[in-house]
Computed example of a mutant assay.
Amino acid sequence: MAERTSRADIPSPVAPPDASVEGTDAGAVGDRPDSAVVRDALGVGIAVGLSGFAFGVTSAGSGLTVLQTCALSLLVFTGASQFALVGALAGGGNPFTAAAGAFFLGVRNAFYGLRLSQLLALPRAVRPFAAHWVIDETTAVSLAQRGRRGARIGFTVTGLSLYVLWNLTTLLGAVGAEAIGDTDAWGLDAAGPAVFLALLAPMVRTARERAVAAVAVLLGLGLLPVLPAGVPVLVAGLAVPIVLYGAGLRAQRTTRGNDR
């Protein structure tokens, strides 16, 4: 008599690997083609890298030499912090205050690094060099990919293209600013803030983010006449806890109202 086959003996079909799971390696189902990742990464790197020209002009206009300007881009390489530093210096701010504001803006990259270290899983020997490229753009491109291979390609191409182009256009902007003399007469002193706002605007999507931006603007502009240059930028950072505290209060009121 033939032995009966139970349901447990029938092998279940193996589900395809989920490419969205963190750490998925190359070849995962649904992973984007390498050419598509490279194209998007180059687009971001070139678009943002060209704004290094504005930084070079702004930095030279604030009194920094070409060598100092290029050193900032080579060694710091975080656009928002660089613009904050030279902007505070241009406004007559204390160098230590300007550096503090730039430092606090750059702290966010440390949190990016915590996320990317798990996603990219780079060899230990490479991590110190890769850390220099952990910025807004490389993080955004890496996190947009579906697998580890795509994330690594996106991070590398974005970082390399942006680093090379940013430093090249920084040099061109600084040399050009020295050649034309007074940048204020040409209105180039507004180039830095304009580029900074252009980079920031697409990131403000939700109502809470818009509230943070609005409170930060009110704090910064309101305190500008009474505080030393550079300090209002630091105080504007309080917009985040202020908005979060207000959101918490509204959530508590809503909960109490539903309980009644």
Rank of each mutant, 00 (worst) to 15 (best):
G106N: 15
A84P: 07
P123L: 06
L249S: 13
T255Q: 13
A190N: 09
D136M: 05
G147M: 00
L89I: 13
I135R: 01
A247S: 11
R148G: 00
L223F: 15
N94R: 09
T254D: 14
A60C: 07
T156Q: 03
L114T: 11
V38E: 05
L197R: 02
G61A: 11
S62E: 04
A151T: 12
W166T: 00
Q252K: 15
S59E: 01
V157W: 01
S6A: 12
R4P: 08
S6F: 07
D182K: 05
L218Y: 08
L120F: 01
F104Q: 09
A60M: 07
L74A: 08
E209A: 14
F96W: 13
P17I: 05
W186Y: 15
V243M: 04
G237F: 07
F155Y: 12
R250N: 10
G113M: 03
T58F: 00
L122Y: 03
D18H: 02
I10W: 10
L120D: 01
L75N: 03
A144I: 01
L238I: 00
D31L: 01
F196D: 07
W166V: 00
V126A: 13
Q118W: 02
P128G: 12
L119R: 11
L219C: 10
N167C: 03
G181S: 14
L67P: 04
G23W: 02
V29A: 15
T183A: 10
D9I: 02
V126Y: 06
L221K: 03
E137K: 00
L197S: 08
Q68N: 08
A54R: 07
V235T: 06
G176I: 08
L42A: 11
A213T: 07
L172R: 08
I242M: 11
A19P: 10
G106Y: 03
V212N: 09
G220A: 06
P225R: 06
L162G: 00
A2R: 13
A191I: 07
I46G: 05
G154I: 02
A229G: 09
D25G: 13
L238D: 05
L234F: 04
F53I: 06
V86T: 15
P193I: 00
P128T: 04
D259Q: 12
T5C: 06
I242S: 02
T169P: 01
G91A: 15
R205M: 08
L168S: 10
F83D: 01
D9H: 07
E209C: 06
A144S: 14
G101L: 00
L249M: 14
G79M: 02
A102F: 02
S35A: 14
A28F: 01
L119V: 14
G87H: 13
P202V: 04
T156A: 15
V233K: 04
I10N: 12
G150T: 04
G176S: 13
V226Q: 09
P232M: 09
S73C: 04
F55G: 05
A121R: 09
F96M: 15
P202D: 09
A201S: 11
E3A: 15
Q118I: 05
G154M: 01
D184H: 14
Q252S: 14
G147S: 13
G159A: 08
T183D: 11
Q118L: 09
G61L: 07
D9V: 06
G246I: 07
E22F: 10
